[in-house]
Simulated assay, not measured.
Amino acid sequence: MAARWYGLWWGGSGYSLPDDNDLEEFASLADAKHKLIERYLHGYWQTTAFAFVHRDPSRVLTPCVGENCEILLYGSRAGGDWPDMRIFLGPRGGVRSERC
C-alpha cells in the first residue's frame, strides 16, 4: 500500500501562497506528481481535482500555473513547521522530488 501524503500546492507567480485551509490529500507520491504536472500542462483548459482536507473537494481550472509551481508535502495531515518533501518541475518538463 502506498503512503498517503498531504500537501500545499503553489501554482507560481499567478497564484497567492497557500494557507492551512488549502491542505490537500494525495493517495501516494506518484498521485501528487501526477496532479502537479496535470495542473501545469492542462489546467488552462481542463479542470483538475483538489482533494482538500479542511474544506469540500473541488474541480477547478488552473490557467496561470508557471514553471515554478511546486507542492510541499507532509507525511501527516498535522503538517508541521517544515515539509518532509518538495516536488517541482525539472528543467526538461519532468517532475522532480527532494527531501527537505
Rank of each mutant, 00 (worst) to 15 (best):
G79I: 08
A78F: 02
F88Q: 11
R99I: 11
L89M: 11
R39N: 03
Q46F: 00
A51G: 02
P57R: 03
I71P: 02
G43Y: 02
D81R: 08
V95Q: 12
W45R: 09
G14N: 13
E67Y: 12
L29M: 07
G12A: 10
L41M: 07
V65N: 08
Y44Q: 07
T47K: 03
L41C: 11
G75A: 14
Y15D: 07
D19R: 11
V53D: 11
W82T: 14
N21G: 14
A78S: 11
A51K: 04
M1L: 09
R86L: 06
T62K: 08
D19Y: 00
P83F: 07
S28W: 03
W5A: 09
K33R: 15
L89W: 05
S76E: 13
R59L: 08
G94W: 01
I71T: 14
A32I: 02
G90E: 13
P57V: 07
R99L: 08
R96E: 12
F88A: 01
P57H: 09
Y40V: 03
F26A: 01
W45S: 11
G43P: 01
Y6W: 15
E24M: 14
S13A: 15
S28N: 11
L89E: 07
R59F: 07
P18Q: 08
L36N: 08
S13Y: 04
T62M: 11
D81H: 10
R77E: 15
W9Q: 11
T48F: 00
R86S: 02
V95F: 06
L73W: 13
R92T: 15
S16Q: 14
P83H: 08
P57M: 13
M1A: 14
C64S: 13
A32V: 06
W9N: 07
C69S: 15
Y74W: 10
G80F: 00
A30L: 05
R4D: 15
C69Q: 06
D22F: 10
L73Q: 12
G12Q: 07
A2G: 05
W82G: 02
I87K: 07
D31V: 08
E67N: 07
Y15K: 09
M85Q: 09
Y74T: 05
E98D: 01
L89P: 07
H42W: 06
A49R: 07
S76P: 05
Y6Q: 08
F26E: 05
H34W: 14
R59V: 04
G94Y: 03
P18M: 00
A51P: 12
L41H: 06
D19H: 14
Y6G: 10
R99S: 08
W9P: 09
K35E: 12
G14L: 03
W9H: 09
W5T: 04
L89N: 03
G66Q: 13
L72V: 04
Y15W: 04
I87F: 02
L36R: 02
C69Y: 05
S97F: 13
Y40K: 15
A2N: 15
E98F: 00
D56P: 04
Y6R: 06
R96C: 08
W9E: 12
P83I: 01
A51E: 13
H42C: 03
A27D: 15
G14E: 15
E98H: 04
L73Y: 14
S76L: 00
K33M: 04
A27N: 11
G43W: 00
G80I: 10
F50H: 04
G11H: 12
R39S: 02
G43F: 00
Q46M: 10
K33I: 06
R96N: 03
V95L: 05
W45L: 03
G90R: 05
N68H: 15
E70K: 15
